[in-house]
Design a binder for these strands. Structure first.
Lengths: 207, 207, 207, 207
DNA sequence: GATGAATGAGACTTCATTCAT
DNA sequence: GATGAATGAAGTCTCATTCAT
């Protein structure tokens, strides 16, 4: 029996340990606040000892930072994929929203990132807010693109519309969190989608 | 100067101490999570000793519960006032949203309640969610009323519309919190109000 | 209506308060250790506020000292009465033991004193042990007297016999305390009395 | 010098730490009440940090419970040894008393157990009283045995005699504790042994 | 690389004591 | 004389972090 099939080489083992810690930490941060989460919880959730945690991460703050980085990567993955795909501005915008909702509903690392963002340690504030900033930037771009290609109503204020979309999206996230069921996010989004479509495509009444 | 003018009687003094603790605690809970907040922070913020805190409240959890109760009362005050006032369903709905936004923007106790609601201790969960439940119930009522009196489009799904309004409202709260400025909430609401009006009054496209 | 019938004059009122505190404190010290007993317990037991306690006694230690003094007085009362009465040495010895057992069974202040003696603060050590010292001194005296008047066996070692009696007496106190029923002390003493009588009156085998 | 001789392996080290805490705690509980004993005292006495205490025991109460368990084991050890040895009922009874007195005089864990028994926390009450119950049960058995084999006077009431022996034994424990010298217990027992022998072997006068 | 065990800073809470009314 | 209210010192316990094996 070769060692590599039964016992992975050190480097691989180490990577697997790190990954287990990351996922375990995400599971913990997804269900309680950063301050409430104890390293012991992460250790139990991941099956890795607390001591090992300090081999892979500098301290509690850094493991949260690593979760946020992983979240950023996964969200970027979805965004990149949708943006590179076919369709007009409106279609892409709906695709982005749906894709992110799907991701949030299923990926514990993204869920953890969202919870961490609502109560950031000063050191984490920037990492926690970056994903939101990126998503809003992309929403703005796609609205502009949609106005150009005619799929979105031309009389819209781009900034106000982006903020509006963001508010709905963030609000639904919080509400699904309250309901203790991130899984409900996609169906929630579907339920309010008619309102979003109306807002984006119908002529807009001035206040 | 008579003694009585300088030192208020015991009973008043005690009530004032309790109030100072409540407001101080709210200020602390409004800027950090329940778990992060130390009794020492509350003591320093309120100018009342930690020992006294335990004369007025049973423990840390109970002072948070008291903040949530105070929040509930203040929100009910606004809701009652608007609901008892004049106007059709749509007007009242806008009044309620505006009134709550104004309250949230200015009242530290309400702000603290909102933050506490996003990371409730099991014991606090119910108290923390009650204000949301009440607000949504009222939104539903007013939408129905608006449909009856013709101020709101008749083809709307009452539940979906209430959820949509709630999502926007909750989302704007979170965004203003992220921006470290609750004060921005009323203007944020104003900025998205055209979208809300459209959604409530224009004929609604079926998904 | 004269004040004195409805509201006792200050001095009497004060004495009554002090007495209530003393009895209340005894009731508390009789059921828990000095360190466990809280001033609040004494206040609740006696119906007198904690603040008042500091008008009548200097601090927690002094109220325990006052309980011990009161115990001393009551035990002396019993001893004096029996010693001044009729009878030979043996009869008086039995009278003292029975009298003290009766007192311990019924008087909460004496019970408190006994418990305090088993865990004395340094400041209380002397006051707590005095009653025991006095009782043993009297036992020795009475044994000597009994030997002289022929009611007690002449070949006894006075000191060893006094220690033996003391051990039995102290042991029965502890056992009735364990049984959570000081009231059982007199019947316990009666049950072992034959052994005591034998020990005091029969010729004694040398070890 | 090889490393292995200087630092014992983890498992041994851990056991040694637990033992040090147990003995240190016993030393503390032997000289002050459970409520007076501070974790800091135990830490200083044992040379182990307070934090470590919570690695080995759940809380202050559990460490006292562990002391009581250890006491139980040691007393059982002595009892088993004497009971399995040679001799008639009287001889074994004297052996048990002497053996226990010796143990109490020298073993700080047993001393601590005795003090804890006099002021038990509700949770500890049962564990604290068990050793007494066992000792009395064995005394009863041996008295019966002694009556059967003729070494103890046949006209004795077994229960009353056991109670009497227990009272003397408990009383001497308390008295040696008062004298701040558990070491005096064996000689105290020796001093009153003639009375015990008389009580057990001479014909018994009815009350 | 991994981990069991140890540590100390600091959190929440209790309680004897004081003081203005 | 009596008391409600306030205080701060000190106690128990938790937990991020370290280190020898």
């Amino acid at each position: 029996m070769s060692r590599s099939t039964r016992n992975p080489p050190r480097q691989e083992r180490s990577i697997a340990t790190r990954e287990a810690l990351l996922v375990g930490a995400a599971a913990v941060f997804a269900r309680m606040s950063y301050a409430e989460a104890r390293l012991r919880d992460i250790s139990e959730e991941s099956g890795i000892s607390e001591g090992s945690l300090y081999f892979h991460f500098g301290n509690k703050n850094e493991i949260a930072a690593a979760v946020l980085n992983a979240q950023q990567e996964r969200m970027s993955g979805v965004l990149t994929q949708v943006l590179g795909g076919p369709g007009d501005g409106l279609r892409k915008l709906r695709g982005v929203i749906g894709g992110l909702a799907e991701l949030i509903a299923t990926d514990v690392i993204v869920q953890a990132g969202i919870k961490l963002a609502s109560q950031p340690t000063p050191e984490l504030a920037s990492a926690a807010h970056d994903p939101y900033v990126e998503w809003v930037r992309i929403a703005r771009t796609l609205i502009g693109q949609g106005i150009d290609d005619g799929s979105i109503s031309a009389d819209l204020d781009v900034d106000a519309t982006a903020e509006f979309l963001n508010a709905v999206f963030v609000g639904e996230q919080v509400l699904s969190e309250f309901a203790d069921s991130w899984a409900s996010l996609p169906s929630r989004i579907q339920r309010v989608e008619p309102f979003l479509l109306d807002a984006l495509t119908k002529a807009h009444r001035t206040a």
